[in-house]
Design a protein around this nucleic acid. Structure first.
Lengths: 331, 331
DNA sequence: TGCTTTTACGAAAACGTTATAGGAAAAAAG
DNA sequence: CTTTTTTCCTATAACGTTTTCGTAAAAGCA
């Protein structure tokens, strides 16, 4: 910038203002500055700029996993808007590790970013770190999908309760007398909502709910296989599955295949997943899929609004997008 | 930091040096400073620090797509090392758009990052922007998977030639008399290598190669379907497929399903893919998969080495990792 | 005309660090 | 006991912007 100023016979402050399109600078000067800046491919140093302005155009995305179609799609959605708004996007993966999540948050208290999008990892022992992060930084945060139900922050979610109700109802209508729900051991708001939908659908259709109808799976795929295989080897095995997590649908398929249980004759399956190959599975998998890309878009849009308009009181905004039920051959 | 200095009765520079573990500061003073810093949860402002040091702990990853198991796994690998080395990772998606790729590169010339990991988008019309980026910034760059063959930069790739040769040979040994290669219209170094492997395997096994045996597909899934359906509707249709791109294997399956061609009886298929559901497709898909996570890890490791040891002359390093051929029912 | 207001710019301070140079006291060397 | 070296710390100047404030000239107004 000093170089530019010298060459144009202007002061550094004038050049800075011209580049910032300030009203204090005449149109002709602005033009001269812009032209020379372009010629020299001048790019303002973001560190200097951020330091002085005490904020930048960087945001962070914290998610449990990226090797998961839902989160990959969400990141895609987020990036599509940060890109168009000329923001830079940091990515951090927690791998369902709460300590890691806390560490990232603490790291970000340094002021590296101007906003945060997050989908929390499993376990509900504590959301205090989010509150604390907010207290110390006052930075806008948007939660999506896996949201902390008790905290007052803007959120982007999908209609887990309603759609789970519908999915379960479809299983029952298709003939399942005793559909089970496969969910996580670690409680999460999203899973609880799905469970509510599931249970209410049972009740509505006069099916008595018992605790064994909830199957808790883990992060360990091999263990999940064992758990499911045991349950489906029983004489009085379930005849329907609502797999409320992407990977559990896959394991269900594997178990049924190995136990020579026919889908959908012996077991009807609906999986909550964004897998692109669902239609190509054997048999094609009926899915309840989340609008992942749009959820990402909405979250990023909301966040940037909050960053740019300080007045924007979005603190309690909750955006709910609809899941999509696609019935295929597995039911 | 001023606050800390005041409270400890020290100068700001002493505090800074103590936090930086400088040898100029006595152990006792260091301890005092560290303790108070911890108590106050002091975090150095990265902008000020980066500005003064003229470099930071941020890197960028530029990839064509994230909704693709290969790239998702690669990002996972990259993040695993940047995380452990306390680097922050920006992510940019080009969606195979060269203009977007150029724009990102130009944006990064501002000095926001200290290093770059990239997998280029399709089309080979120009790699000049990479060279130019390097000339102006002198920043370390590591390419992975989709690398510009003609440029002298460190690269992390997989053994595309050899593994494609092997995969094609397996198709032939399984009985395919006329296996085709499905590849992109846009030429890329990786696809060319795969093609070389394919052709050499044909030659080795005495199969005469003709141009129609290369099927060019696009980014448009619907168009790909049309292209493939037409080819497989012919009387003299191919009896084997080596799908050198993830999504083309899926479309192949769809086409065969719709044309009632039996896999593997009528058509034998091997797909180059990292899909986790490959084993669950109907029939289970034989795959040639890339060590995506490890490629990401290697790329990030190499980059950070280059960033931290200025002397490290890695400019010509090429790391080659082996692909993995998994034979399932589709062959 | 003389007054106020607006326009267009410059000087200088600030943002929060780190690096360089320097210096006093303490320790070591002679 | 001097002289030299080492240890430990401070003052100050960067780093490259933006912002605040000041001011000369031009414009508006009566």
């Amino acid at each position: 910038m000093i170089q530019l100023a010298k060459e144009l016979g202007l002061s550094v402050s004038t050049v800075s203002k011209a580049l910032g399109d300030s009203h204090e600078i005449s149109a002709s000067t602005k033009k001269r500055v812009l032209e020379l800046a372009k010629k020299y491919k001048y790019k303002p140093n973001p560190f200097a700029s951020n330091l002085r302005k005490k904020k930048g155009k960087q945001i962070a995305v914290i998610i449990p996993d990226i090797v998961n179609n839902f989160f990959a799609l969400a990141v895609d959605g987020i990036e599509s808007v940060t890109m168009s708004k000329h923001y830079d996007t940091f990515i951090y993966l927690t791998h369902e590790n709460l300590e890691r999540e806390k560490a990232v948050l603490e790291h970000l208290e340094s002021g590296l970013i101007s906003g945060l999008i997050i989908s929390v990892c499993t376990g509900r022992e504590g959301y205090a770190h989010f509150q604390e992060f907010y207290e110390t930084t006052k930075l806008p945060i948007v939660f999506f999908d896996r949201v902390p139900d008790l905290l007052q922050f803007p959120k982007v979610i999908s209609n887990n309760y309603e759609s789970s109700f519908d999915a379960t109802a479809r299983l029952i209508k298709a003939g399942s007398k005793r559909p089970v729900l496969i969910t996580t051991t670690e409680p999460m708001f999203t899973s609880m909502e799905r469970r509510r939908g599931y249970q209410d659908a049972l009740e509505k259709h006069g099916i008595v709910f018992t605790d064994e109808m909830i199957i808790h799976c883990t992060d360990d795929m091999a263990l999940n296989y064992t758990i499911l295989r045991k349950i489906f080897s029983q004489k009085k095995r379930p005849d329907g599955i609502f797999a409320s997590i992407e990977k559990y649908a896959i394991t269900s398929y594997e178990v049924c295949k190995d136990l020579k249980l026919s889908i959908p004759k012996d077991v009807k399956v609906i999986g909550m997943t964004n897998l692109r190959t669902a239609a190509l599975l054997n048999p094609s998998l009926s899915t309840l899929s989340q609008p992942a890309f749009d959820m990402g878009k909405e979250a990023a849009g909301l966040l940037i609004k909050m960053i740019e308009k300080k007045s924007y009181a979005a603190a309690n905004d909750i955006i709910v997008l609809p899941n999509e039920l696609t019935i295929r051959d597995s039911i």
